[in-house]
Amino acid sequence: MGAAERIAERIASIGLPGSSPDLIELDEVGSAIVPMLMNERILGVAARGIDQGALLGDEDVIGDVIAAHDEVMRQTMRIEVKAVEVSQLFDEAGIDHRILKGAALAHTMAVRPADRSFRDVDVLVGGDDIDQAVQVLTRAGSTRLQAELRAGYDARFGKSVTLKSGDIEVDIHRVLSPGPFGVWMKPKELFLLRQSVQLGGRGLPTLDPTSHLVHACYHVALGQVTPVLSNLRDIAMLAATDGIDFDRFDETITRWRGGAVIKRAVRLAQARLDAELPDELVRYVHAAVPASELEMIAPYLTNDSSGRFAALAPSTLKALPLADRPAYALAVGLQDGSDPVGRVRNMLGR
């Protein structure tokens, strides 16, 4: 591990329960730390560390970190304004929704909103509402990035639909993750409890803290092979908040067959953060998980984002109820079972 990566991990751990309060010197790596902090999306934690005297370094390096954070915040605020607009449009159309991830976590979990940047708007809607949600945003000027695979696919099988509004991406989610673990989750449960985040004079609906923690774990475990430090920090921060109901967390993970997901997420957080995670999470690392769930993790672990859908298609098919499999196979091109990955690639490449 390089010096910049080591320092980034220490910065990502600032203020986490059980983290070392030692001063962090930036001079060893100089301004090379800036792109690392940007990639790991922890410039906000670094900027707060500078204010609190936890980060020390040459004034030029400190100035570079602050300037980079300023710029990221300018972008983040534009996206936040878009989140307010999307929520207002959905309210006016009567679409029940929940703001997910960055826009919500910045105002609920972060020590201060500027700690947490984000790059797009993520919003959850019910499967029955996703077509209308896409229509509402399209009428308001957004453009859908990929056509629906087959009529009815989004509402029945899709993880999310991505639209572009100007240069801002808006992801309308039906479930929190693609593939088999998306099939096994019960997204309607995410609408049972509601929390609000005040933005731009409006109360935007979002998940309750326990559901945010579930989502943070799924995002870390199933999102990228090497998740960014900001996402790992989300887990540690959420796990330390007062509103977490670990009994409900456990019940949800059992119902959603997500033990392998939490196991991987907690392991990744432990490996890179200097933080004490609560026993209720750590015990997932040592818990026995059925082989049928563990083996479903493997297809997610690809750095090739364009090949991810194809990699997940066979395991998604396997996880679906028998009655749903023909429609899914028809939509993604798996109908005869031959060379499924190639068939999906061909279909997406058409």
């Binding site: 900027a47 707060r48 500078i50 204010d51 602050i66 954070h69 300023d70 915040m73 300018r74 983040t76 605020m77 936040e80 304004v81 307010v84 201060r112 909103p113 500027a114 933005l199 731009g200 004079g201 409006r202």
Partner: peptide, 13 residues
Amino acid sequence: PHVERSLARGRRL
């Protein structure tokens, strides 16, 4: 109606 962020060194956006 607005959104805002605190920046380092006491500044605000």
